[in-house]
């Protein structure tokens, strides 16, 4: 036994409520760090057209293409789940249906991501 008391676990209540909150945090952090990089890469338009085109070219290779898929997946989840959070907070029946709303979020996310993946990967892999 450790001498000092420390939390032995950080699982709260699990299930849809906690895990959607965890996923919302992780996707939020990922999106924020991409945003910092994205403003910096776009700022290269003020350096020279060649500098911008060179960096944007790196976004078009297949590995980055898969990264963009992950980024869009994070954004779409964060967006849909964010709407769910707003409904939980402001809609009278929101808390009652928060689980059903999470599965709607996951379902909508899957539909959007299937469509986007087909489109984006065909651009990246030259379809």
């Amino acid at each position: 036994m450790p001498k000092t008391l420390s939390p032995t676990g950080t699982l709260y209540r699990g299930r849809e409520g906690q895990w959607s909150w965890v996923a919302h945090r992780i996707t939020g952090v990922v999106i924020f760090f991409f945003l910092l990089v994205h403003v910096l890469d776009t700022s290269l338009v003020r350096v020279s057209p060649e500098a911008y085109d060179a960096v944007i070219a790196s976004y078009k290779n297949p590995i980055m293409g898969l990264g963009e898929l992950g980024l869009v997946a994070a954004i779409v989840f964060h967006a849909f789940n964010g709407i769910r959070v707003i409904l939980v907070d402001f809609w009278k029946k929101g808390p009652k249906y928060h689980r059903q709303m999470l599965w709607s979020v996951v379902g909508l996310w899957a539909v959007v991501m299937i469509a986007f993946s087909i489109r984006h990967l065909s651009h990246v892999f030259g379809g």
Binding site: D53, F116, R119
Partner: peptide, 12 residues
Amino acid sequence: LVAGDGITGIDF
């Protein structure tokens, strides 16, 4: 990313 040429169409 979706309309037109998607990411391949992005340049200066």
